[in-house]
């Protein structure tokens, strides 16, 4: 190592001093690290760009004929949006597990940074990934005939709700990632959770076609309320198949907002607490 004459580390000018400014700065630095990762890891880009295109094309072209629903594509899109962004949230799970495995969490935990910053940065990363996926899906959807028939507010409202839901779900996955600690297990386990969660809902089929037991589950599944809300906001409801007469789906906005708030209220504090005690090896 060479004899570099070191200057004193200046903590004066340019230093971030107020607690609030430090919190924002920490959150931004942790977010930036995840944005760089999105750019540099090809897997993530494939998932973010190619998979949504594939889903939209496959479902709309393959199933449209078989489904006894007019304009299945319009009906379907909200379901695909929801499924894709929820799957996008699993990055937080595998990334937290990977960070623990790599040991970088130990570095963060010995720095005087805000305890929530790493988690905020990670969930922001998911939000970015999901934002990109949404753009790609909407463009592909437009090509196969999907249209928003309400208003610009309906459009933004629907997109915001989808992203908000996936953001809250990222915190659930982050906790799982820190508890299970193995990126591979997380990847496999999330399929076991996410397939039932998104398929036992109104995402791909009208709920009344489901057998009784599944229908009850689907009616109370917050994903159904999310999809129903998005359909309403985009104007993609199908007059032939009105939503079933269950309270949750007649009040989809309240239901889905309650779901989002509940997830955040429970999992943000749990995640921060867990982060305060995890160590790599």
């Amino acid at each position: 190592m060479s004899a570099v004459t070191e200057q004193r580390v200046r903590t004066g000018d340019g230093a971030v001093t107020s607690p609030m400014a430090q919190w924002f700065s920490d959150g931004w630095i942790a977010t930036r690290r995840n944005l760089i990762k999105i750019r540099r890891v090809p897997d993530i880009l494939v998932f973010t760009i190619l998979q949504p295109i594939m889903f939209v094309l496959l479902f709309s072209q393959v199933y449209a004929g078989a489904m006894a629903i007019d304009d299945y594509t319009s009906f379907l899109m909200a379901g695909i949006f929801a499924q894709t962004v929820i799957f996008g949230s699993t990055f937080s799970g595998s990334a937290m597990a990977q960070d623990l495995k790599d040991g970088i969490i130990d570095r963060f935990r010995t720095l005087p940074m805000s305890t929530s910053a790493v988690l905020i940065g990670r969930t922001n990363g998911d939000l970015m990934i999901n934002g990109i996926s949404m753009l790609i899906m909407m463009a592909t959807g437009y090509i196969v005939g999907w249209r928003v028939t309400t208003s610009i507010w309906g459009f933004f409202g629907g997109v915001a709700l989808l992203l908000l839901f996936s953001y809250a779900f990222s915190w659930v996955m982050a906790l799982l990632g820190m508890s299970v600690r193995s990126p591979e297990v997380i990847n496999n386990a999330s399929f076991m959770i996410l397939f039932p969660l998104t398929f036992i809902s109104n995402a791909f089929v009208p709920i009344h076609t489901l057998p009784d037991v599944l229908r009850n589950i689907a009616e109370w599944n917050p994903v159904s309320a999310l999809v129903q809300s998005a359909r309403n906001l985009f104007g993609n409801t199908n007059p032939t198949f009105p939503p079933p007469e269950s309270w949750t789906l007649e009040h989809p906005y309240i239901t889905v907002l309650a779901g989002i708030i509940l997830m955040l209220l429970i999992f943000v504090p749990l995640c921060v607490k867990k982060f305060g005690s995890v160590s790599s090896r």
Partner: peptide, 29 residues
């Protein structure tokens, strides 16, 4: 620590800059 705690996806420089920022030294410093 006993095992290197670094961000695999960041460059060497970015890793050290990140640590400085998280010590709140400011960007230039």
């Amino acid at each position: 620590g006993q095992y290197a705690a670094v961000d695999e996806n960041l460059t060497g420089f970015e890793n050290l800059e990140m640590v400085g920022r998280l010590y709140h030294l400011g960007k230039a410093e």
